[in-house]
Structure formats: structure tokens, C-alpha cells
């Protein structure tokens, strides 16, 4: 944080910032990164918004149609099912990832033999390309040779092949996501747990606090900021799910992102609606992040 007092005049601080050689250097140093981000991310978003308000095609912007594309989009069954699947997928998978991840973090928050092995095993699913893990799980869900399909069928859990049923596909996707990203959640939470000093627990024990009290009155409050960061990252990530659905269901399962991709890249007839959906994802993701940061009081500052 800058310690200098706030300037009264508006133009004053700009001159001061750029008059100071160290500060000027600092701006030059962050400028390249910011410029790339502006050109490749910010400009296209504005362009997306512009396109979504026109009868746009892949070759021409077309005439201005106001919110017509959005109205059509909300009347499109594919979009609605994409929205529904995305919301269910995000809520359910993040919920399980958090619960299981916290359980694992609490269990391995101690010194034990083979710690390195466990850490490596935990990282393997995380390091997999999502499309490859989707392809691997697709092979295991497959109805002729898939081990999971075989077992689930054997114990009477399913009556039809997993890959040809929309609900089972969604459940399967959630399972794969939980498998793949719970380790990441556990690692973040474990790192957070390790910053809580042991003396705090000792003191609570001396004062007669039981396990549950220690968990809810010490662990959870002190872990809050880590939990928010981890859950925010996972939520934003799940919300834009694309690779997993696209590959594992072989394009059958719709999410918001696959709807956009279908519209603007595969069947370019729905180009304008695809852009409207793109803007919808952008705006809702933005609101979601704001909710975490302001609504839940998450700290994003890196200053110390």
C-alpha cells in the first residue's frame, strides 16, 4: 500500500507518480503484461457485447437488433439445459470437493511417513489435461469395455449404459471433476491449516474446549480466508466447464460454454445467439466473483 497521503488535486498525483524515477520504472515494468491482457481479453469482451446486440454472422456485424438475441437465447432449449447443467454441476461438484477436500486436509495435517508419496499421488489427477482425463474416464464408462459401467451394472446401480443417458452423464462428469480437483482443494486447505499455530489449540484444550468446539471456534474462523479463495477458484472454474462435458459426453451434454462454442464455432448459424450467451457467461461470472469478494468479505489484497 502506498503510504503517501491522498492528493487533493487530481492531476497532481499523476505528475508525482511519473516524476519519480522509481515509480516510473514500476509502471513501465507492469505495462507490457497489462497491454497484452487489454488487447487479448478486454477488447474482445467489448466486441462480444457489440456483436450480441446485432444480427451478427461470422462474416458481418449485421444490423442493430437490441436485445433480440438474448430473448431468442432464453427461448432456446439448448441454452436452458446448458444453464441448468452448469448450475447443477458447479454447485454439486464444488460442494463435494470442499467437504472431501477439508476432510482429507484435516486428516493429513500431521507428520507421517510417506508424506511425499501422498503429495505426489494427490497431484497426479490435478496435472492431467482435463480432456485426457475425460477421455480416460470415457473409456472406463464405456458400455463394451468400461470397468465402471461393468461394475455399476453388476451391482444393479444402473440399468442402461452410462454414456447414453443424460442424467448419468452429468453425474459421471461431477464424479470426474470431484476426482480431479478435490486434491487441489485439499492442498490449499492443508496449506491454510498449517498456518494456524499449534499453541492456539493447546490453549483451547487447556480451557476445556472439545474437538467440535475447537473445529468450529478455531479452525473454521482462522481458515475462512483460505476456504473462500479455494471455493472461489473452484466455483469460477466449474462455472466455465467446457472440456470435460465436450469430450466425455462426446458433445452430448450441454453446458453454457459448450453452447457458446457450438454457436460461434461449430454451427455458425447461431453466431449472434452464441455471442449473447458469451456475454451472459461473462456478466454472471463477474457477479459471482463480486459476490465472493464483497458479499462474503474475501480478501484479495496481496499487500502486507
Amino acid at each position: 500500500m502506498t503510504t503517501a497521503p491522498r492528493e487533493k488535486k487530481r492531476g497532481g498525483w499523476l505528475k508525482e507518480e511519473f516524476g519519480n524515477p522509481e515509480r516510473r520504472t514500476a509502471y513501465y515494468m507492469v505495462l507490457p503484461a497489462l497491454l497484452i491482457i487489454m488487447i487479448v481479453a478486454v477488447y474482445p469482451v467489448l466486441n462480444s457485447i457489440w456483436l450480441s446486440l446485432h444480427a451478427a454472422t461470422i462474416t458481418a456485424t449485421g444490423e442493430f437488433v437490441g436485445f433480440e438475441n438474448y430473448v431468442e437465447m432464453f427461448g432456446n432449449d439448448d441454452f436452458i439445459s446448458g444453464l441448468k447443467n452448469t448450475v447443477i454441476f458447479t454447485v454439486v461438484s464444488v460442494f463435494f470437493e470442499f467437504i472431501i477436500g477439508l476432510g482429507i486436509a484435516l486428516a493429513i495435517n500431521r507428520a507421517f511417513r510417506g508424506r511425499g508419496l501422498v503429495r505426489a499421488a494427490v497431484l497426479v489427477p490435478w496435472a492431467f489435461p482435463t480432456v485426457i482425463s475425460a477421455a480416460m474416464w470415457r473409456l472406463m464408462f464405456q458400455d463394451q469395455i468400461g470397468v465402471i459401467n461393468y461394475v455399476a451394472n453388476g451391482i444393479g446401480l444402473i440399468s442402461e449404459p452410462i454414456l447414453s443417458d443424460a442424467t448419468l452423464l452429468l453425474i459421471g462428469s461431477i464424479l470426474v471433476d470431484v476426482w480431479k480437483t478435490t486434491p487441489f482443494m485439499a492442498l490449499l486447505l492443508l496449506a491454510g491449516l498449517q498456518t494456524i499455530p499449534g499453541e492456539v489449540y493447546e490453549a483451547a484444550r487447556v480451557d476445556g474446549a472439545n474437538v467440535l468446539q475447537r473445529f468450529f471456534l478455531i479452525t473454521m474462523p482462522l481458515l475462512k480466508s483460505t476456504i473462500l479463495v479455494a471455493v472461489l477458484f473452484r466455483t469460477m472454474d466449474s462455472y466455465r466447464v467446457f472440456d470435460l462435458f465436450w469430450v466425455m459426453s462426446n458433445r452430448q451434454l450441454e453446458s453454457l460454454s459448450t453452447f457458446v462454442y457450438q454457436g460461434v464455432r461449430i454451427s455458425q448459424l447461431q453466431f449472434a445467439q452464441g455471442n449473447a450467451a458469451a456475454v451472459f457467461i461473462f456478466v454472471t461470472a463477474f457477479l459471482l466473483a463480486l459476490f465472493f469478494i464483497y458479499g462474503l468479505g474475501m480478501q484479495t489484497s496481496t499487500e502486507d
Binding site: A41, N47, F233, V264, A278, A289
Partner: peptide, 16 residues
């Protein structure tokens, strides 16, 4: 940017 849904910009970038 790390929360940014990449899919939101593929159409304009494709055109660009």
C-alpha cells in the same frame, strides 16, 4: 483475468 470465462471471447478473437 484468472476468473475470466475464456469462452466469452473466442468469437471476437476468431474474427480478429
Amino acid at each position: 483475468i484468472s476468473f475470466f470465462p475464456a469462452v466469452a471471447i473466442i468469437a471476437p478473437l476468431f474474427l480478429l
